[in-house]
């Protein structure tokens, strides 16, 4: 029971961080993914590579740049000065910014694939019915893209829950504010508190497994029903 209260702030923080990050990414990711799926511009190669960067970069690279950019001499510090703070590091906002970059490919890539799979026809059909783009997108494309959005949301959420390196570098390990579950496990291990480490680690293992199983189940159902 004591462990539950010890770990509860980290659980709440991790879930809020993953939730906020996922919502932002679904909103930001939609136009990026749409453009990547549709545009013939040669710039898609560049943007595709930029979006995929967090897949191959060590989180320490992202963490290092974040630490500088969020700090008093970077744009983060400038932004923070509007409410009288001097840095976005060590704050929830800072973690959200870091996580948005970190989980970007996990949201944009499934959306891009979905949009590409839907093809041009449904939109053209909607136009021929006199829909404008906004109406066509909301009434035709979004319902068709629902499985893609589900995958994007689950992967974005789960990947943010699994974030470690970036938070480690910009978080400052503050209980209830920036100490997420992955950091809590690291601390337990460092302090040889094996029991606590086991319980939390096993909890995350179960969470990750069921998340992935559910997504794959949903994927299978969706591909059986067709888009």
């Amino acid at each position: 029971m004591q462990l539950f209260w010890d770990i509860w702030p980290a659980v709440r923080l991790t879930v809020s961080l993953a939730f906020v990050t996922t919502v932002i990414l679904l909103v930001l990711g939609t136009p990026i993914a749409w453009w990547l799926a549709r545009s013939k511009s040669r710039w898609t190669v560049v943007v595709n590579a930029l979006v995929a960067l967090p897949l191959v970069l060590p989180p320490t690279v992202l963490g290092f740049y974040m630490l500088i950019l969020l700090g008093p001499s970077g744009p983060g510090g400038w932004l923070a000065s509007f409410w009288g703070a001097r840095t976005l590091a060590f704050t929830f906002t800072g973690l959200v910014i870091g996580s948005v970059f970190y989980s970007l490919p996990f949201v944009v890539q499934p959306l891009r694939n979905t949009f590409a799979a839907i093809g041009k026809e449904p939109l053209e059909a909607a136009f021929s019915l006199g829909f404008d783009f906004r109406k066509a997108f909301v009434l035709v494309i979004l319902p068709l893209a629902r499985p893609g959005y589900l995958t994007a949301a689950v992967l974005g959420f789960a990947h943010t829950v699994g974030e470690f390196g970036v938070v480690m570098m910009i978080g400052g390990n503050i209980p209830g504010r920036t100490k997420v579950l992955s950091i809590a496990i690291f601390d337990y291990v460092e302090q040889l508190r094996w029991t606590e480490a086991h319980i939390v680690a096993f909890g995350m293992l179960i969470f990750a497994f069921f998340t992935l199983a559910l997504t794959m189940g949903a994927d299978r159902r969706a591909s059986r029903l067709g888009p």
């Binding site: 630490l67 700090g71 008093p72 001499s73 001097r86 840095t87 590091a89 060590f90 570098m169 400052g172």
Partner: peptide
């Protein structure tokens, strides 16, 4: 080292 880095980057005063 990380503590020093927090101060040296100015993120902690």
């Amino acid at each position: 080292s990380q503590t020093h880095q927090f101060v040296d980057t100015g993120n902690a005063e």
